[in-house]
């Protein structure tokens, strides 16, 4: 029977080709998972505030005037695809594919992450142009507390990718670097999970109940 390889933390495991890196990664990655789950609780709090603020529009512009579903759709597809590319990067790492492949998939992830940010910032600028600024109403404060927080996480992920790229050039594919890549991939998948919540609750929920 074909047993699954030993699997000791979420996401792609480095596995037996990288036995020393795999072992070193196990504990820190669980720690990172604890961080992600507490980050999740923080996001949950922002979601709770948003839900209670949906009606607090104070006569200002609401979801129907401000939300652009076409742009949200594009952002969703971009972020989802970047989840696939970061996974393929991890598989390339795990199965010792040529380094160019690893760089290619991480590079595509970075490009997709930056495209996501461009679209999101454009959305915020369009909203501001229609008077949708944070200080206009409780609804907008809650919106800007939550959605750009996710954007900030994506921006941090992009910065992280750039730093990993530089480290890869300088130090080569060390155990430590592989272990960092594992955590980056986890972080990136986590951001996609949060984005599903944002699309469902902030955008569709806002349009239904706002």
């Amino acid at each position: 029977m074909n047993r699954a390889p030993s699997h000791s933390y979420p996401g792609i495991n480095l596995g037996e080709d990288h036995a020393s890196a795999h072992k070193a990664t196990e504990v820190v990655t669980f720690g990172f998972w604890v961080f992600l789950m507490s980050d999740l609780v923080y996001f949950g709090l922002m979601f709770a505030i948003y839900i209670t603020m949906i009606d607090a529009q104070a006569g200002g512009p609401g979801p129907h005037e401000l939300f652009d579903l076409k742009s949200i759709f594009a952002q969703t597809l971009i972020l989802l695809t970047s989840s696939l590319t970061v996974g393929l990067a991890m598989l390339a790492l795990k199965y010792n594919l040529p380094r160019a492949r690893i760089v290619l998939w991480f590079g595509m992830t970075l490009v997709l992450g930056l495209s996501f940010l461009v679209l999101e910032i454009r959305d915020f600028m369009n909203m501001s142009a229609q008077g949708g600024i944070p200080q206009r109403s409780g609804f907008l404060s809650a919106f800007y507390g939550l959605v750009p927080l996710h954007g900030l996480h994506v921006a941090t992920g992009c910065l992280w990718l750039i730093i990993l790229g530089i480290q890869l050039r300088v130090f080569g594919l060390t155990d430590l670097l592989m272990s960092r890549m594992v955590r980056l991939a986890l972080f990136w998948h986590f951001l996609d999970l949060i984005w599903i919540g944002i699309v469902t609750i902030v955008y569709f929920g806002g349009l239904t109940y706002g």
């Binding site: 699997h7 979420p10 989840s83 996609d192």
Partner: peptide, 23 residues
């Protein structure tokens, strides 16, 4: 959410990923 947890994050009821699931 479930699809991504299972297929991307590989969270399932296998014993080795129990702690992650618990969390």
């Amino acid at each position: 959410l479930l699809v991504q947890l299972v297929y991307f994050l590989h969270i399932d009821r296998r014993r080795s990923s129990r702690e992650d699931l618990d969390l």
